[in-house]
Amino acid sequence: MTWFTEANTQQDIIDRAPTLAPAFKEFYDSFWQLSSIPPSVLELCRLRVAQLHQSDYQWQHAQFELSVEQRQSLSQWSKSAVYTQTEKACLAFAEVYCMDPQAITDAQAEAVKSELGDAGLVALIEALGLFYGMTRVSQLWDL
């Protein structure tokens, strides 16, 4: 249970605002149907955002099934062979995004674009904003 409601999951808490919950769910779910980024790449980025925020709640959640090796090696992704070039480009981008989006370099953006195209870069940036934001919201809610 959080500090302002007896609900104790992110979705149950959001449901306390019934005029907003369906639109939020539609927006969130739309990212997992993208043609420009595989859901496995998004899940790796979502989990990396959780790690950087030390959010155990978001880390424990599984939005898309990954291999055990990919989950276990995530904090050392840059040295690991279990990630593809596309995944590494997106994880590198995600880490700088979390620290300061003004610090993203053109080379980091180009690396994502060369793997996923223009739409993929935009989709990644939007998805990172959603993951970053919901991680922080879950921390505000003591989840």
């Binding site: 302002f4 605002a17 989006p101 003004q102 919901m134």
Partner: peptide, 23 residues
């Protein structure tokens, strides 16, 4: 509770797309 959820999601959405514009 509904107002706190509303405020939280509003901040999240504004932050998401302002960081998007910067990125």
């Amino acid at each position: 509770a509904a107002e706190i959820v509303h405020l939280s999601l509003a901040i999240m959405l504004c932050n998401c797309f302002s960081r998007c514009a910067v990125s």
